[in-house]
Design a protein around this nucleic acid. Structure first.
Length: 245
DNA sequence: TAGGCCATCTGGTCCT
DNA sequence: AGGACCAGATGGCCTA
C-alpha cells in the first residue's frame, strides 16, 4: 500500500518546482498544512497529474524497464519530502522569528515603562538602579507614603481637604496599603499577599524598632523627602504589598 | 563559585 | 489568522 504522504509529496514535487521560495504561503502555511500532507491525495487538492496515474507497482513489475521508472519515482518522492520538510521548517522558523521580534519589542516597552516609573521615584543617593521588583515595591510604598502624608496633613488641618484636592477619591481605596504604622504597626505584612519572611524582614513589623518611632525622611541630597509621622526607612523596606514568591 | 538579575527564546493560550 | 500576553527555560553577566 503506497504511503499517502509520499503521494502528496509527489504533488509537492511539481508544485515546488514551479514556485519561488517567496511564494510558499499558498500551499504550505503551518502545522495544519503539514497535517494535510498526511491525507490521501484524493481527499483534497488538485487532481493528480497524468504522470502519477502511472500503472500500479504490481503492473509495473510486468513491464520491461518499469522497475527503473519506479526507482526513479521513489528517488523523486524522497527529494520532494526533504524539500517540503525544509519548507515547513523555514516557514515555522520565519514565524517564530517574527514572534520573537514582537516579544522583544513588547519587553522593551515594558522596560521603558519601568524606567519612566523609576524616573519619578526618589533616586537613591548612590544612584544604584532599582531592580524591577524593587521599583514596583518602592513605587507602591511611595504612593502609599504620599497618601499617608496627606492624610496626616488633613488631621493636622481639619476640614482643609488637602488630600481630596490632591488625590482623586478612587486613589485611596485602591491602595490596599497598610494601616497607619503609628496605630497598627503589627498588622503590616499581615495581608493575604504577605509572607512571613517579608514581614520579619521589615523593621516595621517590630513595634519596638527605632525605625518605627522616627519620622521618615528619604534621600541625603537636595531634596530630602520628608514624611512627618511616618516611620523612618519606610521606602527602604518591603512591606509585602507585592507578594513574595 | 553560588546566587541574583536580566534578556531572550519558546510554546501555549486568549483575544480581536 | 495573527497578534498580545504569559510563564518556563536557558544562558550571560555581575557581585558577595
Amino acid at each position: 500500500m503506497p504511503a499517502p504522504l509520499e503521494t502528496c509529496i509527489s504533488d509537492l514535487d511539481c508544485a515546488s518546482s514551479s514556485s519561488s521560495s517567496s511564494d510558499l504561503s499558498g500551499f504550505l502555511t503551518d502545522e495544519e498544512d503539514c497535517a494535510r500532507l498526511q491525507l490521501p491525495a484524493s481527499a483534497s487538492g488538485p487532481p493528480a497529474p497524468v504522470r502519477r496515474g502511472a500503472p500500479s507497482t504490481s503492473r509495473a513489475s510486468e513491464v520491461p524497464g518499469a522497475q527503473d521508472e519506479e526507482q526513479e519515482r521513489r528517488r523523486r518522492r524522497g527529494r520532494a519530502r526533504v524539500r517540503s520538510e525544509a519548507l515547513l521548517h523555514s516557514l515555522r522558523r520565519s514565524r517564530r522569528v517574527k514572534a520573537n521580534d514582537r516579544e522583544r519589542n513588547r519587553m522593551h516597552n515594558l522596560n521603558a515603562a519601568l524606567d519612566a516609573l523609576r524616573s519619578v521615584l526618589p533616586s537613591f543617593p548612590d544612584d544604584t538602579k532599582l531592580t524591577k521588583i524593587e521599583t514596583l515595591r518602592f513605587a507602591y510604598n511611595y504612593i502609599w507614603a504620599l497618601a499617608e502624608t496627606l492624610r496626616l496633613a488633613d488631621q493636622g488641618l481639619p476640614g482643609s481637604g488637602a488630600r481630596e484636592r490632591l488625590l482623586p477619591p478612587q486613589c485611596v481605596p485602591c491602595l490596599p496599603g497598610p494601616p497607619s504604622p503609628a496605630s497598627d504597626v503589627e498588622s503590616w505584612g499581615s495581608g493575604a499577599a504577605a509572607s512571613p519572611s517579608a514581614a520579619a524582614a521589615s523593621p516595621l513589623s517590630d513595634p519596638s524598632s527605632p525605625a518605627a518611632s522616627e519620622d521618615f525622611t528619604y534621600g541625603s541630597g537636595d531634596p530630602v523627602f520628608s514624611f512627618p509621622g511616618l516611620p523612618k526607612d519606610l521606602l527602604h523596606t518591603t512591606p509585602c504589598f507585592i507578594p513574595y514568591h
